[in-house]
Every structure is written in C-alpha cells, then in structure tokens.
C-alpha cells in the first residue's frame, strides 16, 4: 500500500505514508573533491592564494604554514563546489550597500571575489612594487595584507577589504575544518589546539575535570595509521 501510494503520490508532491522513507546504507555524503589538481584557480591565482595563506598562517614552532596545511587547495575546491556560486544563498537584486548591521550585500559570489580580487591585487602590486603579489618578500606581503584589512589600500576595480575578509575567513575554515576538504593536513591545527576532531563519544571523559586528556585527533576519514600495515 505504501509503495503504491509512494509511486502514484509523486503526482501531488513527495508523499510519505505508512512507513518512514528509510533505506539501509542510504546517506548523504559530504561534498568533497579528490586532491592533486587545481579545480578553479589559474596557476597565477593559485600562487597568489598560497602567498597569502602562508602569511595569514605563518610556519612557526606551533604548526606548519597555511600553505603547507593545504588552505589554498581547500579554497580552490570550495570555490569549485556549491559554495563558490552561493547557489544556496539569496542573491536576487537590487544590490545596495546598506548599514553595517545589514551585513554582506555584495553582488559578487565567492568565485567572482577571488577572480576579480586577485587580479586587482596583482595589478596594484605591479603598479606599486613592480611585481606580482606572490613574488614579493614576506614582510611586504604582510604590510599589504594589513593595508587591505584596514581599508588603507584601494585596489583598482575591486573592494580590497572584501577580498581580504573573504580570504581570511576561507583560510581559517581550511586550516580548522576536517582534512577531508583539503586543508588541515595531518590534522595539524587540531593537534596544535588539542581538539580531538570527529570523535563522537566523551561519556568516559565528561567528568574528568581539569585534566589534560591528550586525545589523538580523528578525522571523518579516520587516522593515518588505520591505513598503514602494523
């Protein structure tokens, strides 16, 4: 009966009667892409983003850099996916600036923010420093990033602050998200913080107060030693 109704029911919506529409092993997987290539960035754009993320998250005794952790790969794959086009968001016009309390009102989706923003950044760097951003020394890149953050640098044809905020937000996502998305290589940020990742049961630990637990982190994809012969 339920199956009959489900089949004929399509005619007036997705009709559910009698039993829950449950199928064993049916699950909605995360949206991930395999590594080893760039999906959205051109070679110049990839170099520029790597040159940014290694300054936003520099290598030091706490962790590798954002570049080595895969933040640029993370951003590239996010831009290639549903996030890159803001397909889930409300993107109908008219677009107006609004008050700070009304939030991001830019008409540009993330892909456009990177494509236009990175081109504008390189144009600005070539005009003022005769080189692309990625070719500049680290300290100079820091000064430029600070200038963008403070709104003191005006890029030709794109809002520098919007570019900075977009890249900073995505870089932090890449550094701290599960490694399945291409960043946080070897769970480097989780080891640094003491965050155990995708573990799902702390019943044995909830009442161990003020104790350093040192739980090795776990990714949705498991741990590296699960995939090596013992």
């Amino acid at each position: 009966m339920a199956a009959l109704l489900a089949a004929s029911g399509k005619a007036f919506g997705d009709v559910i009667r009698g039993t829950q529409p449950f199928s064993p092993f049916d699950y909605a997987p995360p949206e991930t892409l395999p590594g080893g290539r760039w999906y959205f960035f051109s070679p110049d754009e990839a170099r520029a983003v790597e040159a940014i993320v290694e300054r936003l998250i520099p290598a030091d005794d706490l962790s590798v850099s954002g570049k080595e952790a895969g933040c640029a790969e993370f951003i590239d794959r996010q831009l290639a996916g549903s996030y890159g086009s803001y397909e889930r968001l409300y993107m109908q016009g008219p677009f107006q600036k609004g008050t700070p309390e009304q939030g991001d009102q830019s008409e540009f989706v993330p892909r456009a923010r990177y494509r236009r923003g990175l081109a504008a950044l390189d144009a600005w760097c070539r005009a003022s420093h005769s080189k692309a951003f990625a070719e500049l020394p680290g300290e100079t890149r820091d000064e430029i990033l600070s200038g963008l953050e403070a709104g003191k640098i005006e890029l030709p044809g794109f809002d520098g602050r919007l570019l900075f905020e977009t890249v900073l937000g995505n870089t932090m996502e890449g550094f701290f998200a599960d490694p399945i998305y291409g960043g946080n290589k070897d769970m480097v940020s989780w080891k640094m913080l003491g965050f155990p990742g995708a573990r799902y049961d702390y019943r044995d630990y909830v009442e161990r107060h003020n104790e350093k637990l040192d739980l090795p982190p776990l990714s949705i994809a498991g741990r590296p030693e699960w995939k090596t012969r013992g």
């Binding site: 529409p21 449950f22 699950y27 549903s82 599960d178 990742g197 799902y200 949705i220």
Partner: peptide, 23 residues
C-alpha cells in the same frame, strides 16, 4: 525534505563543522 537520522546526520559524517555550522 523528509529528514532521517541515518541519512541526514549519519554518525560517520555528522561531526563536520564546515558542512553543518559554516555552510
């Protein structure tokens, strides 16, 4: 949609901050 725990918040992939909190 109809939500189902096993399909929509499967224990193998439920602990995903990027997907559920950010996106």
């Amino acid at each position: 949609p109809w939500r189902d725990t096993a399909r929509d918040f499967n224990i193998a992939t439920a602990a995903d901050e990027l997907r559920y909190n950010q996106r």
